[in-house]
């Protein structure tokens, strides 16, 4: 199947403009016979929202952007980022998965970074579950930015049978040294590679670009296959929309070669976790 990753620079707070950008990209991807288009975290709104959060929040059931998106998704599947008002006055950093005319899943960001340049927990409510969604596109799990960097999150998707881990992100570059890479970008790439290889799954990372408040969002979106091999990588800093053919059969080959999935023992892990948390008695 063909995946399109849209490394774009959304305009802060301007849903109408960003919506048009989404439509253009989807239209093009459709022409290129792409099966799945991935947009970054908060792709409809931009990142540094602060008090704008409540103003740009959308209720999924009752707005025309989503009815329009649903229509488009009859022909092509896609994942978009937005501020969700799930209940009145409660806002989530969410990503919605559109497929066959419906929203088949919404992931609400769980780990909200709140330190240094980040203040998400000040403005957003926390999500509380990780899901894997089956469709003709395979078994897909969505993680939003920092969600991915917490070790167990990918594993929870793995236990649920994930085949493609989609990570949507708004990661600014920071930590330039004399090295050829950004310290911040390397974090994503190293973790992406390890997760892909050890969980024998595809990892698709879609980051945004552009500046907000002096923050330079780094781009560098990538796809790792289940062997942990990078099969596509976008440039840093600049807009780039790429399409890449991925072969789900590789999951079979990778899992024959490295039997992490077969040999996994989540029941044992769960029992040990409970012990560690003193939820059950230690032997």
């Amino acid at each position: 199947m063909k995946v399109t990753v849209a490394q774009i620079a959304p305009r802060l707070g301007d849903i109408e403009k960003n919506f048009q950008t989404h439509l253009d990209i989807l239209e093009n991807a459709k022409k290129q016979k792409s099966d799945l288009v991935i947009f970054p975290e908060l792709s409809l709104t931009g990142y540094s929202l602060q008090d704008l959060v409540s103003e740009v929040a959308l209720q999924v059931d009752s707005n025309h952007y989503f009815s329009e998106f649903k229509k488009i998704s009859r022909d092509i599947s896609f994942i978009i980022g937005f501020v969700e008002e799930k209940e009145r006055g409660i806002f989530y950093n969410s990503s919605a998965f559109f497929n066959k005319g419906e929203i088949i899943h919404i992931h609400r960001k769980i780990f909200l970074p709140n330190y240094g340049i980040f203040e998400e927990a000040r403005f957003f409510a926390k999500g509380n579950k990780f899901s894997v969604i089956s469709s003709e596109l395979g078994k897909i799990g969505i993680l939003i930015c920092r969600d991915f960097l917490h070790f167990p999150t990918s594993y929870i998707l793995f236990v649920q049978g994930v085949e493609i881990i989609v990570v949507v992100s708004n990661s600014p570059v920071r930590g330039v040294s004399d090295k050829e890479y950004f310290e911040s970008a390397r974090l994503w790439e190293c973790h992406g590679e390890n997760v892909a290889r050890l969980l024998t799954s595809f990892v698709i990372y879609c980051n945004r670009v552009g500046f907000e408040e002096g923050l330079c969002f780094g781009g560098g979106s990538f796809i790792f296959n289940p062997f942990g091999k990078i099969i596509k990588k976008a440039d840093y800093i600049e807009e780039e929309i790429f399409s890449q053919e991925i072969d789900l059969q590789e999951l079979k080959h990778a899992r024959c070669m490295a039997t992490y999935k077969r040999d996994d023992n989540p029941e044992l892990i769960l029992r040990e976790l409970k012990k560690a948390l003193n939820l059950i008695e230690k032997e």
Binding site: V176, S177, D178, E180, F182, C216, Y236, I237, E238
Partner: peptide, 22 residues
Amino acid sequence: LKINCKLVKRILVRFIREELQK
């Protein structure tokens, strides 16, 4: 304190252009 000047230049050139044009 050593920096990769190529990367820094890329950030700063885009910063100047984008922050003005916005």
